[in-house]
């Protein structure tokens, strides 16, 4: 460089050989940072996106029976047509939808209520928060056992209490009419602590001067929350809602652990349990892959708008 340079004002690119530029590219942050992100990215991409692609490919075949290398011939969408006209699939999807809407809505409202309660200066706040969040640290397999016992018809605590009021006993898990709601209640028990934590973080980022300003303006506490504080929690609500909705779609473990079989309690079958059952109980690999793809599309329906929202807000 240097020596053969001309000094005119436009001498920007002249005199710089491709070697220099090449060396610059090699030294650039992009190339230098590649080893850091490329390895985890490759592992993740193969697992997640490779898996999705492979799953889709299987869903186009007619594979069933024992697990063996897939034969990719006669590719068509037959499995999807079959799934969409299968009453079991329709029913499972309905349950999914009920779970998604009611579980998400109640969790959000209840979590917000808990967060606002804890946001007021109460004593032993950390301990209380820890207790509320405790169920989140447990496996669904464990919490399913706990609630199975809670709901037990003969001597479960809920029926014992109902007995004191001369009600029941009610077979919460065995009755298909109410089993889904019993399970939603248990899941709310497990998840509302999570929603609370998300809202608490949102509440803490709002300067307390806003609350004080509202007080000086003579607004009631309720009014300040409704008009000033809660509208600012939009971002918290969105991210919590996405997490809850996606969970409602894929919840499998809790339902499986209730019975210990591929058949969850009657009236609580959702796409996730149906899919695993079709695959591992009946070995309908292609069919279950098709159901899995439908499930993925539903999840995508939730996360795509969310990702777009995040991208637009610049908060990715």
């Amino acid at each position: 460089m240097g020596t053969n340079e001309t000094t005119g004002p436009s001498a920007t690119e002249e005199g710089v050989g491709w070697q220099t530029k090449f060396r610059y590219v090699l030294n650039s942050d992009f190339v230098r940072s590649a080893p850091f992100w490329a390895v985890p990215f490759a592992i993740m991409a193969v697992a997640v996106y490779g898996g999705i692609g492979y799953n889709f490919a299987i869903s186009l075949t007619d594979n069933n029976g024992t697990i063996e290398p897939a034969t990719f011939s006669n590719l068509d969408f037959e499995m999807y047509f079959q799934a969409l006209s299968d009453p079991n699939v329709i029913q499972a999807a309905t349950h999914n939808l009920i779970l998604l809407v009611s579980f998400t809505a109640i969790c959000l409202v209840f979590g917000l209520f808990l967060a606002i309660m804890l946001d007021r200066q109460i004593r032993y706040k950390e301990t209380v928060q820890m207790i509320y969040l405790l169920p989140m640290s447990l496996s669904f397999v464990v919490t399913a056992q706990l609630w199975l016992w809670m709901y037990d018809t003969d001597s479960g605590i809920i029926n014992e209490l109902l007995g004191l009021l001369s009600l029941g006993p009610i077979d919460f898990i065995g009755n298909p009419e109410i089993a889904l709601w019993a399970i939603i209640f248990a899941l709310i028990w497990q998840f509302s602590g999570y929603t609370m934590v998300v809202y608490l973080a949102g509440l803490q980022s709002i300067p307390s001067s806003q609350f004080e300003a509202g007080m000086i303006d003579g607004a009631s506490t309720l009014r300040i929350y409704l008009r000033v504080i809660i509208p600012q929690l939009k971002a918290s609500s969105v991210s919590a809602a996405v997490v809850l909705m996606v969970f409602a779609l894929k919840a499998f473990t809790f339902l499986y652990a209730m019975t210990g079989r591929y058949f969850p309690p009657q009236g609580t079958d959702i796409l996730a349990t149906l899919m695993v059952r079709e695959a591992w109980q009946y070995n309908n690999w292609a069919y279950s892959a098709a159901i899995a793809t439908l499930l993925l599309l539903m999840a995508l329906g939730v996360i795509a708008p969310y990702l777009y929202y995040q991208y637009r807000e610049g908060s990715l």
Binding site: M1, G2, E5, A11, T12, G15, V16, T20, K21, R23, Y24, N27, S28
Partner: peptide, 19 residues
């Protein structure tokens, strides 16, 4: 985006900060 920066006459556009 355009233009040149030279240290003692030597073009440094393609030199990383480290160097």
């Amino acid at each position: 985006s355009e233009g040149a920066i030279r240290f003692d006459g030597e073009l440094v556009n393609y030199t990383v900060p480290q160097d």
